[in-house]
Structures are given as structure tokens and as C-alpha cells.
């Protein structure tokens, strides 16, 4: 082994990446070569000193970031992330009403129709978040859709068609709202970027990116 080979092995030895045979060969060379022995000592010392030079982050880092995040959340009242439990309650109300025969929901085969004001329940939720409520009929439509399909439904209003959906296929509801079926990941992106309310058939909102599909209802 020459000194150049030994130098390469020294580097890998510092990284714990030598085989036993390579390690033994390096030892043999170091025993015979005082120059390489000195190089090895120096490289070893440098690695140790570098590791010891690690710094503790200042408290200002964590404090500054969290302050900014909390201020950012306050600055976004238009974005209605409706609490999951409250949404579950709203969706349950739709289901309850459907089973009791009070309103017609697709799939429940009810005929004697009266209206139930799901919108007022949703309004209360929005009042808690400080966000401006969407159209009541649209809120009801979104809640019904979530209950019927078992999918999360995002309601987007006052934002136009999100850029991410401009070329996507959609159905048009009677109200003129556009209905898109998207991946959970896309739904999460839209929720993050646009003023949106989310309606869920269950209370597991944080898993939205993991859902295979979700609906986005865009008001005209």
C-alpha cells in the first residue's frame, strides 16, 4: 500500500466505512510510515474538534418562528378551517335528518321532504373561527355531499377557480357551482392556499393528504 492509498483508507476509516481487511491493511501501513501516522493523528483530531464545535441554537430561533406562525394564523381569518368535531356534528345532523326522513338525501330513498337548516349549524362554526360564512345553501350542499359520499368536501368561495383546478374536469351543479374530484393531497393544497371550508363525514381531518379522493365545490 502506498501513502495515497492509505490516505483514502484513512478517510473511510474516519467514517467507519472500512472492512476488517482494509482496516488491518491500514494499520500495517501506519505502523510502517511515520508521516502517515502523523496525518492520521491530525485528521482524527480535526474530526473530533469539528464534532465538539456544534452550537446550541439560540432561543430567539424557536421564539421568532412560533411568533411569526401565530401572527400568520391570526392574519388569515378568511380561511375557515372548521374544527373537526364541529364538522362531525354537522355531518351527523345531516345523517340523522336523512334517516328520520326529514330531508331527501341521495341514497336514503326518502320522499317526504322538508328542509333542515344545516347552514345555521355551520354558521355557528364559522362564528367560532371568526371567518365569513359561505352561502348557506352551498354549506348545506357541501355537508350533504360529505355525508352521502363518505368523502371530505372542500367548499371554496370568493376565490375564483383555484389555479390548481383550472384544467381539471368538473361537473356543474344546478346552483352553478363546479364540483371537482381531486386527490386528498390536492385538497390539502387548496385548503392551504385558498379561503375554504372543509366538511368531513368523520372527524379525521388531519389525514386529508392521505385520502385517495376528496371533492372540491367551487362557488361561482
Amino acid at each position: 500500500m502506498n501513502c495515497e492509498n492509505a490516505l483514502e483508507l484513512m478517510n473511510r476509516e474516519l467514517d467507519g466505512a472500512l472492512t476488517e481487511a482494509e482496516s488491518a491493511a491500514l494499520r500495517a501501513h501506519l505502523d510502517a510510515c511515520p508521516d502517515c501516522r502523523e496525518t492520521w493523528r491530525q485528521l482524527h483530531e480535526l474530526d473530533a474538534l469539528l464534532r465538539e464545535s456544534e452550537l446550541e441554537p439560540p432561543a430567539a430561533l424557536h421564539e421568532g418562528v412560533m411568533r411569526e406562525i401565530r401572527q400568520e394564523q391570526k392574519r388569515k381569518p378568511h380561511r375557515a378551517w372548521v374544527p373537526a368535531a364541529a364538522i362531525a356534528a354537522a355531518a351527523a345532523l345531516v345523517l340523522l335528518a336523512g334517516r328520520a326522513g326529514l330531508i331527501a338525501l341521495p341514497g336514503f330513498e326518502q320522499t317526504d321532504v322538508i328542509s333542515v337548516n344545516i347552514g345555521s349549524a355551520v354558521e355557528q362554526i364559522f362564528a367560532q373561527t371568526g371567518a365569513k360564512t359561505p352561502d348557506e345553501a352551498a354549506a348545506q350542499q357541501a355537508a350533504e355531499l360529505a355525508a352521502e359520499t363518505g368523502l371530505d368536501v372542500l367548499l371554496v368561495w370568493n376565490s375564483g377557480v383555484p389555479l390548481e383546478l383550472e384544467t381539471a374536469a368538473y361537473e356543474t351543479a344546478q346552483s352553478g357551482a363546479r364540483l371537482y374530484c381531486v386527490t386528498g393531497q390536492m385538497a390539502q393544497t387548496i385548503l392551504d392556499e385558498y379561503g375554504a371550508a372543509a366538511y368531513s363525514p368523520d372527524d379525521v381531518f388531519s389525514d386529508l393528504p392521505e385520502k385517495e379522493a376528496a371533492y372540491v365545490l367551487v362557488l361561482p
Binding site: 456544534e54 452550537l55 446550541e56 441554537p57 439560540p58 430561533l61 424557536h62 418562528v65 412560533m66 406562525i69 401565530r70 394564523q73 378551517w81 390539502q188 392551504d192 381531518f205 388531519s206 386529508l208 393528504p209
Partner: peptide, 21 residues
């Protein structure tokens, strides 16, 4: 990722040292 600031804070505390260094 679901904008839970408390969870983000914990995540940050776990990773801030390597990022800062």
C-alpha cells in the same frame, strides 16, 4: 402539515439544532 401549530413547534424543537448548525 394540517397547520397544527403545537405539533409544528414540537417538530421544530426536535430538528432545530441540526438545521441551525
Amino acid at each position: 402539515a394540517a397547520q397544527d401549530a403545537a405539533a409544528f413547534e414540537q417538530l421544530m424543537l426536535l430538528h432545530q439544532k441540526p438545521v441551525y448548525n
